[in-house]
Nucleic acid binder design. Structure first.
Lengths: 162, 162
DNA sequence: ATGGGTACGCTATAACATAACGTCACGCGC
DNA sequence: GCGCGTGACGTTATGTTATAGCGTACCCAT
């Protein structure tokens, strides 16, 4: 059974933080001359308003709820676009997607701390980790293109609870 | 289409290296008082004799070729066992499995260099990378349990070819 | 023999992902 | 205006990965 996540309450986004992030994404796309179409914007909004990683088929459900239509390729094409623009990240361990905390940067590397108690994911960008991985790859004569670092464990908040 | 991989030629394992690795795995399991059953041994052998990461359903095909039977849970249960014993690793980016280069060590961390030209995966165990990740996790109050590091890129051999 | 534990068989289904092809709207050069 | 290329999207179908849920065979210690 697919987990149900944050089905947009009518009064979602009370502070306007979500809309602000979407607006920044719109601006970034305009700057780059690429099109944040309605579908892509809807998918981005769904990802941002979930406070956990969200899977492709949950996004599909959300998109269908919003627009009445959509098939798997609809969602995957939007995801490909958002990933290429660096607006979201894919969490490999979960086969799921999270918003990028810094939507201005194009395709930056990131590390994720995945709490398997509460399910939340924290995004980091640590230079020392990147440097260490780059160094060891170079000693093997390997040319890195994309680095995935995902740490499974328990976050501080959940340690306090137990 | 599922990739076809190394369908055991009749004269496979000419040097006996494969059988030696399986024998070491048998010995390790015996030492720990766990059972490397026929199914588990077959799945391990299939993983070791593929020189690329191999997916669960390719393993299922191989198992069925060997024994005439097997369903997805058959393979997944064997994989769970082999992972728990540290005899294999899972490559998250590929949803596929590789043999552990050091089958004596129980559940050690590892990093992978994945060549997306030739498809081969190199396993590393770099203390500096582990330390850097542990350090940054601790600054977040996060308790790491399992660390995934996977680097996509082009290996030295494939760079030379181009 | 009985009861517990481990491994395995089996059906079914959830969940993730892509191939392949068609349609439509838009902008551009002419 | 017209033709054309391109990008976005629709649609069908399928491929691939993973697990739930249940039953049974077997070993072995009591």
């Amino acid at each position: 059974m697919r987990p149900e996540i944050a089905q947009a309450a009518p009064d979602a986004d009370p502070t306007g933080a979500l809309s602000a992030r979407v607006a920044r994404a719109e601006a970034a796309c305009a700057r780059r001359g690429v099109r944040l179409t309605a579908i892509r914007r809807d998918v981005l909004r769904l990802i941002l308003q979930a406070d956990e990683p969200i899977g492709a088929y949950a996004l599909l459900d959300g998109l269908r709820a919003l627009t009445g239509s959509g098939k798997p390729p609809t969602v995957y094409r939007a995801l490909d676009f958002l990933l290429a623009q660096g607006l979201i990240h894919r969490v490999e361990r979960l086969n799921a997607f999270v918003g990028c905390h810094d939507e201005a940067v194009h395709q930056h590397a990131a590390q994720f701390l995945i709490c398997h108690d509460c399910g939340r994911v924290a995004e980091l960008e640590d230079a020392a980790v990147e440097a260490a991985i780059g160094a060891v790859a170079r000693t093997q004569g390997f040319a890195p293109a994309r680095v995935t670092v995902e740490v499974d464990g328990v976050c501080g908040a959940c340690q306090d609870k137990s």
